Simulated scan of single mutants.
Amino acid sequence: MKKKLQILIPILICFFVGFIGSCFQADAISNWYPYLNKPDLTPPNVVFPVAWSVLYVLMGISIGLIMNSNSRKKKYFVKIFLLQLFLNFTWSISFFYFQSPIAGLVNIVLLEIVIIYYALSVYPIRRLSTLLFVPYVLWVSFASYLNFYILLYN
């Protein structure tokens, strides 16, 4: 039971952080974001909550597997995971709440660095934890492109 909770709790934390972040962006998604120049590759708004739901599950499983490991460094990896989750949360505030593509870009670049570091660092402990982070790394890379485009053309 403890092992299942060590996977379920991080998933729920990811969803909670995502929900709180969405509260900060709701107004801007209605009143600011639709009027920005965006690249042709920008997905419809309905894609974002679906993608993030999948990513939160994968992220939670990733850290849960690390927490269930015998590694002496698992507390360190939890701290790295929490740092990336904090940066994920603050991106919504930087980009949407403050309506600042430059602050968002700085934030998302830091996020990308931390999630790549996490993914590479946990590989020797649990390869599956790294593989579960690959979609997240790819999504944040794509989001970085969107953020950069918006910065350049608005």
Rank of each mutant, 00 (worst) to 15 (best):
I11V: 13
L65R: 10
I80M: 10
A51E: 12
S62I: 07
V17T: 00
R126T: 00
F148Q: 10
F96N: 03
V137F: 12
Y136V: 00
F15Q: 05
L138H: 06
P135A: 12
Y153N: 09
I113Q: 11
L138F: 08
I11P: 11
Y35R: 12
L152P: 00
G21R: 02
V17M: 09
A119L: 14
L82I: 10
P39V: 11
V57P: 10
L110M: 15
K73S: 13
V50D: 09
V46H: 08
G104H: 06
M1K: 11
G64Y: 01
P43M: 15
L83F: 00
A26Y: 05
K3V: 13
I102C: 01
L120H: 06
N37D: 12
M59S: 07
G60A: 14
Y118T: 03
Y117P: 05
M59C: 09
L83T: 15
V106D: 01
G64A: 08
A119E: 14
S100V: 03
Q84H: 13
L55M: 14
L110R: 05
W139L: 02
Y117T: 10
F148C: 13
Y149D: 12
S53K: 08
F98C: 00
V54G: 11
V17S: 03
L65M: 10
V134M: 14
I102P: 02
W52F: 15
K38V: 13
I102G: 01
A28S: 15
L55W: 02
L151R: 03
I80K: 06
I63N: 13
G18D: 11
V57F: 14
M1Q: 14
V47G: 00
F15H: 07
L12D: 08
R72L: 14
S71Y: 09
L128I: 11
A143K: 00
W139C: 03
V137D: 08
R127V: 11
I13Q: 06
V78N: 12
L146H: 08
R127F: 13
V47R: 03
A103C: 05
L55G: 04
V17H: 06
Y117I: 11
I63K: 04
D27H: 10
Q6T: 14
F89P: 05
N88E: 07
F81V: 07
L111S: 08
F16T: 15
G64S: 07
S94R: 02
L138P: 02
S62T: 01
V134T: 13
L146P: 04
I9L: 15
N70V: 03
A26R: 02
Y149E: 03
F96I: 02
S71N: 00
N45I: 15
L131R: 09
L87R: 03
P101M: 06
P44T: 09
L82H: 04
I29H: 04
L151P: 04
I7C: 10
W139G: 05
V106S: 09
I13S: 04
I20S: 05
I20E: 08
P44A: 14
L82V: 07
